[in-house]
């Protein structure tokens, strides 16, 4: 059963959300899912950009006004 990890980066400015994501992704196995909660609009851009460049599956969901969740499925080690 793949793991699902929630990382809370609400109120955090760049580059904290991305660094939290990078650190959390290292601890995950392939197939695991990371859910990153953000309210900083820059992170909405740079986190998916990084994850896609590495090769993970990424989805972005707006869960409220100025609040998003980045859902990343680990694809590559």
């Amino acid at each position: 059963m793949p793991k699902e990890v929630v990382v809370d980066a609400l109120g955090e400015a760049c580059p904290v959300p991305l660094i939290k994501t990078q650190k959390a992704m290292k601890t995950l196995e392939i197939g695991d899912v990371l859910i990153l909660k953000i309210d900083h609009s820059c992170a909405m851009k740079n986190v998916p950009e990084w994850a896609r460049k590495v090769g993970h599956n990424v989805e972005l969901e707006e869960i409220g006004d100025c609040e998003w969740e980045v859902i990343i499925e680990k694809v590559v080690a």
Partner: peptide, 22 residues
């Protein structure tokens, strides 16, 4: 196209989803 907010294709547990929506 990728940055558009779309329906989730990644499997997620319902526990984390239901609490998130406002």
């Amino acid at each position: 196209e990728q940055t558009e907010i779309t329906e989730s294709k990644i499997p997620r547990r319902s526990s984390s989803r239901t609490t998130a929506r406002k």
